[in-house]
Amino acid sequence: MANIHELKYTYSLRMADNAWILSHRLSEWCSNGPFLEEDLALTNIALDLIGRAQAFYNYAAELEGKGRTADDLAYRRNERQYYNNLLVEMPNGNFADTIARQLYMSVYEYYFFMSLQNSKDETFAALAAKTLKEVKYHMAHAADWTVRLGDGTEESHEKMQQAINNLWMYTGELFEADETDTALIAQGLGVDNPSLHSLWETHIKNVLEEAKLSLPAANYMQTGGRKGVHTEHLGHMLGEMQYLQRAYPDAKW
C-alpha cells in the first residue's frame, strides 16, 4: 500500500494532468475561433487551466520530494506516465465538439471541486475553492453555447447533438474510483467520484433539455487514462508540447 504522500502525489498529478492537457487543447483555438470575442474566451479558459495545472504540479512536486519541478512533471514524462482522463485529450474537432467536451468536463469539475473543498488536506481544499470560482464561469460558458447551438439553426443543432453523442463514451471514466481514490476517500482527503455521477447526469440532462438535445443512450464507456493508457491523440500532443524540453535537455527557458 502506498503511503499517504504517494497517494496525494498521484492525486495531485492527476488533477494537474487534466488541467494541463485540456489547457493545451484550448490553446490550439488561438486565432482559430469563430469570432474574435470567442477566440479570447477560449484562451481565457485555457489560461485558468494552465494556472491550475501549475498549482497542482507544484504541489505534486513538493509531495514527491525528489527535487523535480512543475515543469519537469509537465514536460518530461512519457505517454504512459500521464494520468489525465481521456476526455480532455480528445481533439478540438469543430466548435461544437469543443463545447461538448467543455460541458462534460466543466460540469464534472464543478461537482468534483465542490466536494474537494471539504478535503482534510488544506492545500487540496484551498486550491479547490479557488478553482471552483473559475469552473463556474467555464460551466456557464459551455452551457450557454450548448443551448445556443442546440437551439440555433438546423446545422448547429445537428453538429451539437453529434458532438454530445461522440464524446459520451469518454464520460464514464470520470466517475471511476481506483485504489488511490478509495484510500483517499476513506481518509476524507479525496472526492467520492462515483457519488457525483447522478448529480452530473441530472445537470447535463437539464442543459441538454434546454438546448433541445437528447441525452445519448447508455453504451460502452472507455477507460484507461488513470492507468496511463491513452488514445492515440495524446502522443502527438506531447511530441509537440515537449519538443524544446526534449531537444535541449540542459536548457532553461
Binding site: 488561438c30 500532443m237 519538443y243 524544446l244
Partner: peptide, 17 residues
Amino acid sequence: TRAPSIRAKQILLAKIQ
C-alpha cells in the same frame, strides 16, 4: 503549443490574448 515551460506558455497565451 511548443512553448518550453508552463510559465512561458502562460505568458505567451496571455500576451496573444
